[in-house]
Amino acid sequence: MIIFQKLWAQLIKGPEVRFISHLDLLRAMEKALRRAGLPLSFTRGYNPRPRISFASALPVGMTSCGEYVEFIPKNPHQPEEFKEQLNKQLPTGLKIVAIKEVAYAAPALMALINLARYKISFRLPPEIKARVFLATWRDFYQQEEVKVCRQTKKGMRTFNLISHVHDQRVYLEGDNTALAYIDLHLGSRGNIRPGELLQAFWDFAGYEGCQPVIQRKGLFILQDDCLLSPLKIEF
């Protein structure tokens, strides 16, 4: 039996590529790997797929400084070399910043990662006072329930947005620019998007700010109330 190598890497998705969809990003990575001469191993079966997977799909329009990718290369590589060679072939805006080899038996990244941190900045309407905004923000997050309906594959489903929020914090910067940090749970209960959370807030507040700039600051493993970076855990 061939023992494959498993590599985990941390990837930056910069503003240049923020409009690239998840599927397009995956295909771009596959091509970059082919150019770099770093062939992946393939899944078996009727429709073989290269073995590359992302921990979590990043919504279109967002940048990120911490996406995680798992590679199963066809041949083993020295991880740092793999990173260097791949970076040379990645388009502007994409960059591997850290890489690590883990045991082949390590669980799937997708199953481990359960929290995403977002940084959201937006401008408030000029007529809204800072104090009023901060109070509304607090009231919004003190609710037990914020329900939204969403069309899913299984039909219409109702979500409680608040139950997906792990933590949040908001600051005001200069004249009416708000900066929010929001930690959202990821995983089995279905993911919510920071955009829809913000929209629910506008609906609650009764006014609407400017189009937000959203950045994913990172993906984490939440364990016993501690946030762990996926590459810091030993497997």
Partner: peptide, 24 residues
């Protein structure tokens, strides 16, 4: 990218059409 484009691209379908920063 020009700021005007940054502003309108999130509001149109398939924004990738208008980016112009592909490989090669």
């Amino acid at each position: 990218m020009k700021p005007e484009l940054e502003e309108i691209l999130p509001q149109v379908s398939k924004p990738t059409r208008y980016l112009g920063m592909e490989w090669n």
